[in-house]
Amino acid sequence: MSTRVARRALLSLALAVSATIGGCVASKGDIRLLQDELRSMQAVSARADTVRRAQADSALRALSVAQDSMRALSARFGNFQAATSGELYDMARQLLTIQEQTGLSQRRLQELRATLEEKAPPGVTATPPMPGDSTKPAGPGPAQLFQVSVDQMRRGSFGVARSGFDELLTRFPRFEDAPAAQLYVGQAYAEEKNATAADSVYLLVVQRYATSAEAPKALYKYALSQLAQKKPDLAKQVLQRVIREYPRSDEADLARARLGTIK
């Protein structure tokens, strides 16, 4: 047993030395400390050898007692535990609130912008009301509505995002990012696993905003949706349509590549 300990110590010393050389960090002092450590470990294990059995028995008994008392303690103070961890969670929540507030201040800015959009005369606003917007809108302006809805989209609140974009499209149909808003509506449906609704909205984008940059995107997403629905023939047709109608778009390039992978 003692030779084993010695061998282990030697091994560990060798390992430690190699680690030292490899690491190039340990000083002579560290090595001395390590040697001290090793010596004391050796001594400890030698001593432990003789008294181990006796110790182990008593330790086991003590441990089981300790465990029992721990369990009792934990049961008894279960409600305290809840209270203290509750405190921690409160703190965490506060932090989250602060985090949210930094986000909110961003939103506050957009609200201010929206207020400006409402009150300032046309030409001063960031996004002036379009001729088609007959009535002066109440509530947030299009830019803010768009941004808030995009944020909801990013957070995975697709229903909220969708209603935001819908409201935007109803109130500001000529807003410059209306095609993007419409495309987002389709994507929100797709995320909600409503492929039928998503498909019809994608086609609506192409129909309503045929010359926008969103049209080829919508058409391409429509094709991918068909592929996902195991309709490769329709998908092929749509991809060919992307190439034919929007030959210079990025989506035409993607469509060409994609056609090659469909059997």
């Binding site: 560990s12 430690a16 470990m41």
Partner: peptide
Amino acid sequence: MPRLAVTALAALA
């Protein structure tokens, strides 16, 4: 055991 020694060294550092 060897691992312990290395660990100890790293910990000291």
